[in-house]
Design a protein around this nucleic acid. Structure first.
Length: 445
RNA sequence: GCGGGGAUGGCCCAGCUCGGUAAGGCGCUGGAUUGCUAAUCCAGUCCUCGAAAGAGGUCGGGGGUUCAAAUCCCCCUCCCCGCGCCA
């Protein structure tokens, strides 16, 4: 949510921002917000005046009674006030709800460096690293390859849980864990605190982070419980400190969220949609920072460097783009997308996203910094994917694929895989061997 | 799931039986004082409106009773302890 001060004092800034985002459809929302704000302040003043009257009269009644004198006349005078107060309260509440709803629909102010544009075509390339290698043989799609190697079973994933779920097996299960562990250690060395957060949040907590009316259809809800499975660890990490005051001396707080995420997004989006690229469930190491307002832009670059260094360590070519105004999410003031090279698609594709949300999330979550009893300020929040293992594994399976159908394990990951340097040797039985495992009577522990 | 106890300002806690408009402590900030850290004293410490003076709100949430609700009545949520179940 934006600062009400901006709405009152510089509405033209908000309007220009909507125009830059290409979201002129929302200009009426802004105009309504301005009107409701005026109405609200007017109504509130009137209400305060009535309440003041009531307080004065009840004070008089109390004094008369304390002095043992008759308060009947004053009580009759006071008796008509509650109804007037109640009806005005109802009206003021409604105006305030309208105002808040409108404010929640107005997106964050973009940073001046965000290029103007409508779609991802207009995103601005910032830099490239690494040379995509032209393969000397025909590459297999990662899903086909992984199935052939027996390290992923999409079919049984569908049988047991539906499309979008998979059984990772053998070396691929290890590779997933290796990425998580390498990623965690990588961020710990850079001063981040690892967090394994709750994987479900109640509605009230979730609503602090996102507009559930818009997101509910892509979220998994637990039946019969007030719980939603998390779509990214950004959500539990933000909710972690809502309504709190963070000690200014301890900022910035840098967290490495390690979690499994659940999203219902499906649908066909281009080539190789089968496979790990777009899943209902995947693992991720996420950078999340709470900081002072004046340091957020420096930290935004720092988080970006972390992700780039991570991909350099793996040896995967990438490019970085600044999202244009039309492609930037509602809560972000500026976003960089990390795009890894996918040789099968002969293209750079998104593997992570780095946003400075300035004080937009913090205002809604009511997360402030400062000293208890001292000056307080809204913190800035930033989040950046370090690695989403699903997409990163696709990049590894494609970029490091060898002619013999095996895949080279990036050097930095080998220590996390018992020294393994190649994936795919002496496997391929798992999908063929049918082992009729019996259930034990009370379930295995 | 059953039983019991709770939710009060940044934190701890009083007030609730008996309605009269949140006491006290800790922490923090500023000031005074003493040759230092300390101690002591004073003021401040949440949200909203307002240029300010000031006013209003706030006792887990929502209803109700009343001139007046932290306090009385009804409904709900969450937390803690014990029991049950159980990785």
């Amino acid at each position: 949510m934006l600062d009400m001060k901006v709405l009152r004092e510089q509405p033209e800034v908000i309007r220009a921002n909507l125009e830059k985002r290409g979201d002129t459809a929302r200009i009426p929302v802004l105009e309504n917000a301005m009107r409701w704000d005026r109405d609200w302040r007017e109504g509130q003043r009137e209400l305060d005046h009535l309440r003041h009257q009531r307080n004065v009269v009840t004070g008089e009644i109390r004094e008369l009674k304390a002095a043992g004198r008759d308060a009947g006349a004053k009580i009759r005078e006071a008796a008509e006030l509650p109804e007037r107060i109640r009806s005005l309260e109802a009206r003021v509440d409604e105006i305030q709800r309208n105002l808040r709803d409108a404010m929640l629909r107005i997106p964050n102010l973009l940073h001046e460096s965000v290029p103007k544009g409508a779609t991802e075509e207009d995103n601005l390339e910032v830099r490239r690293w690494g040379k995509p290698k032209a393969p000397a043989f025909e590459l297999k799609g990662h899903a086909e390859l992984a199935e052939a190697l027996g390290i992923a079973d999409f079919e049984r994933g569908r049988k047991a849980a539906g499309a979008g779920f998979v059984y990772l097996l053998g070396d691929l299960a290890r590779l997933d864990q290796a990425l998580l562990r390498f990623g965690t250690d990588f961020l710990v060395k850079r001063g981040f605190t690892p967090v394994f957060p709750p994987h479900a949040l109640r509605r009230s907590a979730y609503e602090g982070m996102v507009d559930l009316t818009a997101f509910e259809e892509v979220m998994y809800k637990v039946e019969g419980e007030d719980l939603f499975l998390i779509a990214t660890s950004e959500h539990p990490l933000g909710a972690m400190f809502m309504d709190e005051i963070l000690d200014a001396d301890r900022l910035p707080l840098k967290f490495a969220g390690v979690a499994t995420q659940f999203r219902k997004e499906i649908g066909a989006h281009g080539v190789d949609t089968k496979g790990l690229f777009r899943m209902h469930q995947f693992n991720k190491v996420e950078q999340f920072v709470f900081c002072r307002p004046e340091e957020s832009w420096r930290i935004h670059e720092e988080l970006q460097k972390n992700t780039e260094d991570f991909y350099k360590a793996l040896g995967i070519p990438f490019r970085v783009v600044t999202l244009c105004s039309g492609d930037t999410g509602k809560v972000a003031a500026k976003t960089y997308d990390m795009e890894a090279w996918f040789p099968r698609q002969n293209a750079y594709r998104e593997v992570g996203s780095n946003s400075n949300c300035t004080d937009y999330q913090a205002r809604r979550l009511n997360i402030r910094g400062g000293k208890a009893g001292g000056e307080k300020f809204l913190v800035h929040t930033l989040n950046n994917t370090l690695v989403a293992t699903s997409r990163c594994m696709v990049a590894i399976l494609e970029n490091f694929q060898r002619a013999d159908g095996t895949v080279t394990v990036p050097k930095v990951l080998r220590a996390y895989m018992g020294g393994l340097s190649k994936v795919g040797e002496k496997q391929g039985r798992a999908t063929k061997r049918k082992s009729p495992h019996r259930r034990t009577r009370r379930g295995e522990s």
